[in-house]
Simulated assay, not measured.
Amino acid sequence: MMVSTDKTVLFLMGPTASGKTDFAIELAQHFSARLISVDSALIYKDMDIGTAKPDANTLKKYPHHLINICKPEQSYSAHDFVLDAKAQIETAFDHHQLPILVGGTSFYFNALEHGLSNLPESTSASRQKFNQLLQDKGSAKLHQDLAKIDEKAALRIHPNDSQRVTRALEVFDLSGKTLSELQGNKKPSINYPIKKIILMPERSELHQRIEARFLSMMDNGFLDEVKHLKQNPNLNEDLPSIRCVGYRQAWQYLNGEIDKPSMIERAIIATRQLCKHQSTWLNAEKDALIMTKPDVKKAVEFIQDNSKT
């Protein structure tokens, strides 16, 4: 049975390996829905196995928008995501659909709900400069440099989060203003009511799923996928696509920098660290329906309850 809803946007969130995709598909069977991916890894073409992308049959039956929209060498910013997601949400409402935004990329969800700062665009020269600094000094040392110019940003950003550390330094380099200064004047990107459902299994269960899933990826040809990517002369391990968990470790293994058991161990550890980071963000979310296991009946009631918008 298809049940209707008003112009509400649903955020279906959860850490990696929590079962969000399957739950979104279940919900889509109860609503006239439009599934919109909120995942900074699923945007890339030719990166299917290591990103746990829904398979072709699933995507044919239940299309997920904003999947496979970039080549791995292309840049895609949170600003790009906001523009694309807003267009998808409007299309959903034009077709009397419930937009279900499903994923685990906190920065994208935050950009939609709270807006984006007017930050300077990266240039190829600035990207090259900070990629080189990252290679020369390492993320932890650059984080120390960031703390000297923008203590607030340094407290928010983990020293190992090289992408956000270098971006904060780049913003200061390009604009002369700190990231914290520029992030002060934000407006929400969408003006519709948002409902949030968070799928949050127990930590031990997530850890088991992460390990089992990565071993399954290995069995299903993940290394062949990365070998194919390595043949692309435009790719290197400093690009956001190759920084995705699993890909960087496989890249290092194929370069002969680490052995296979180390690669597997490091990829699983990196994925668990991502899971922890996502869980910390999700635990701070307010007014969300939190589930340790998918409960479609409860979710449908929550979505339809007008008192919760």
Rank of each mutant, 00 (worst) to 15 (best):
D295T: 07
E205K: 04
G176W: 11
A33C: 02
T271W: 05
D80F: 00
E285M: 12
V300C: 03
K230L: 04
G19R: 03
N232P: 05
K227C: 10
S4Q: 12
M218N: 09
L59T: 14
S175T: 03
A33I: 08
Q252M: 10
D136S: 08
K260Q: 14
Q208L: 08
G19V: 06
S241D: 03
P15Q: 11
E73R: 01
A140K: 15
P54T: 09
S40V: 00
L206S: 01
Q88F: 05
E265I: 07
A153Y: 08
L101V: 00
D80E: 03
V38A: 12
D295Y: 05
I69G: 01
Q128V: 11
Q128I: 14
E90D: 10
N191S: 14
I157S: 13
E151G: 04
D80W: 00
I210R: 02
L133D: 14
L119T: 04
A33E: 02
K195D: 04
N185S: 14
I157D: 05
S162C: 13
P72Q: 00
A212F: 03
K20Y: 08
D238I: 05
K152H: 05
T105A: 05
E257P: 04
S75H: 06
E285K: 04
I149C: 12
A78Q: 10
F23E: 03
K86Y: 07
L98H: 08
K86Q: 14
R156N: 13
S75N: 13
G14P: 13
E211Q: 12
L169Q: 09
L206Q: 06
P159V: 04
K260G: 09
F11V: 10
I264K: 10
E151A: 06
K152A: 05
A28L: 00
H158A: 12
L174W: 04
E121M: 11
W251I: 05
L182F: 01
G103P: 05
I69Q: 09
L282D: 06
M291Q: 15
E237W: 13
D6W: 10
